[in-house]
Amino acid sequence: MKVSVLIPAWNEADRIDQTILALRTLAIVEEIIVIDDGSTDETYRVSLEAGARVIRHSTNYGKGAALYSGLLATDADIVVFLDADLCETAVEVEKLVDPILQERCDMTIGRLPKPARGGFGIVKNFARNGIKRLSGVELEAPLSGQRAVNRRALNAIENLGDGYGVEVGMTIDAARKGMRLLEVEVAMKNREYGRDLRGFLHRGKQFVQIARVLLSRWQMR
């Protein structure tokens, strides 16, 4: 089965090459597609030189739009969504793909180690409770961007949206249509947002975009 990895990226020139090179060591990965979502740094050039296929947006449209562009560009049987800043820990992607190859589930969700610096869990709990209320599924890692899906699950997903609510939306859609979801522990590590101004601004933006997705799924009931 063909496995494609989609990496949405915005100004990730300092880390994305390490992520791509780690993925290229895996025989299971046949295709790596980076969606450069309007970066103003060298993300496009660095990704190309590291060996990825790159789709370039002229404007920053958001994570959902970036993933949608990637989906239009691949015919893979299994699609993996990964963050750009995983660096060498991207090799853990095999743990996400294996359960799908074994037909144990339709979507895997990576459960990363607890960050050393984190917030208060407000956004995470908001997402978890919203998913449970609207789909009946309870997750430990509702916001994880590290996921693998088969074509059945992809066909079950509605509009991906344009921001940080993409994972919440795809989880609700897949669960509502009977897809089998499985959380998988992975030793991946990405950029952490602490309890400083940058971290609070990031989580505030997450909260608003997740609320928008939850409202749209509530209206679709």
Rank of each mutant, 00 (worst) to 15 (best):
I210H: 05
I109E: 06
G62P: 08
L86I: 02
M1I: 10
G165Y: 03
Q206M: 15
V208L: 14
A22H: 01
G38I: 02
D75H: 13
M179P: 01
Q206W: 15
V137C: 08
V186S: 02
L160C: 09
G169V: 12
D173Q: 08
E103V: 09
W10A: 10
S47Q: 05
G169Y: 02
E94D: 06
D85C: 01
L143C: 10
Q206H: 15
G204E: 13
E88N: 09
N60G: 06
V54F: 09
Q209K: 12
V97K: 00
A141W: 00
A175N: 05
E158R: 14
N150V: 00
V97F: 00
G165Q: 09
D162M: 10
K63F: 05
L96F: 03
L48T: 11
R133P: 00
P142E: 11
D85S: 05
L82E: 03
L214F: 12
E183L: 09
Q206I: 02
G178P: 08
R151P: 05
Y193D: 08
S39E: 08
G110N: 06
D83H: 04
V5C: 04
P142F: 03
N155E: 15
D173G: 07
P99L: 07
R191C: 08
G165S: 14
Y164T: 07
G119F: 07
L154V: 03
T43H: 07
N190V: 02
L71E: 04
I210G: 06
V3N: 05
M179W: 04
Y164R: 14
V208S: 10
V93N: 01
V213N: 03
S144T: 09
I28W: 00
L201A: 14
N190I: 01
V213Q: 11
L82D: 04
L82R: 01
I33Y: 00
V186D: 00
L101N: 05
D37R: 06
N155Y: 09
D37C: 10
V34E: 01
G64D: 02
